[in-house]
Amino acid sequence: MKTEESLSTSTDADPAAYFAAGHAAVRSNVERALSGKPQAVRMALTCLFAGGHLLVEDVPGVGKTTLAKAIAASIEASWHRIQFTPDLLPTDITGTTVYDQKTGTFDFRQGPVFSHVVLADEINRASPKTQSALLEVMEERQVTVDGRAHPVPTPFLVVATQNPIDLQGTYRLPEAQLDRFLLRIAVGYPDLAAERDLIMGRARAGAPPELRPVVTVDQIRWMIEYVSRVYVSEPVAEYVARIAEATRTASQLQLGISPRGSLALVRTAQAWAACEGRGYVTPDDVKAVAEAALAHRLVLAPQAEIDGLTAAGVVSEIMSRVIVPVPAGAR
């Protein structure tokens, strides 16, 4: 592909610029669909480039699905949408083996999970069995049927949405499985001006614009690879370790973050730094992504729940008391 070639030649010269170009393209594309929510878009793209899965949790109608669809549409890749319902079966997601009468063999017919981007809508409406089928794929990046492993394509991004209210007939995701999501974000209501613009835009132009893919799968793969190479200095690693330590000793928490959580935090911070156009992570990056990367991994102590604390609140409280490490010679 021509564009890809021109881009890939520039990776040798200036990887940072190449990443920035890709990031800007995706971001502007997504923001065309979801205007007025730059923070949510940024966070979602951070998750994408970090190579993790995204859980969007918010009330209905704020654009969760729009966001997920916009991201999927921006990439020149296969994508499927699975609407989770209580009667959805695990095989409806992973696929199943069917008997081929011609050949006399059992062929594996791939389910919707075999695509680059999977949009799992209202994930908490499905039964735990179905949920865990998806979560297994998310972690293993392969589907095992009848003893045979079928790897899903890379990159593999699951964007799940769930509704925090209207809990009747839902199955809340267990904490252990929430851990599989790299980030949990909320979209939030647009502010007054953004909402006015949104209404005006719809009133004039009608339906939202059809999004076209702006990056290829290879490009995304390269970008994820680039993120993993963003430099993490010792003070930053120390900072993340201190944060993890603080969550484990915090009285408001029953369960702190696991080392997987620490790694997730670092990875997210790397992606954030890359999106900021930097080749190294600063404590500011860690702070910026901490809530999204950590809040869903924590289990509040019963007393804290009675006190009405939220995990996000506890994270920000912890961030406000963890000392930022400064390299020697800086004091």
Binding site: Y231, S233, P235, G279, Y280, V281, P327, A330
Partner: peptide, 8 residues
């Protein structure tokens, strides 16, 4: 400062 303290 960021470059000096955290950069590579």
């Amino acid at each position: 400062v960021n470059l000096a303290m955290y950069g590579a």
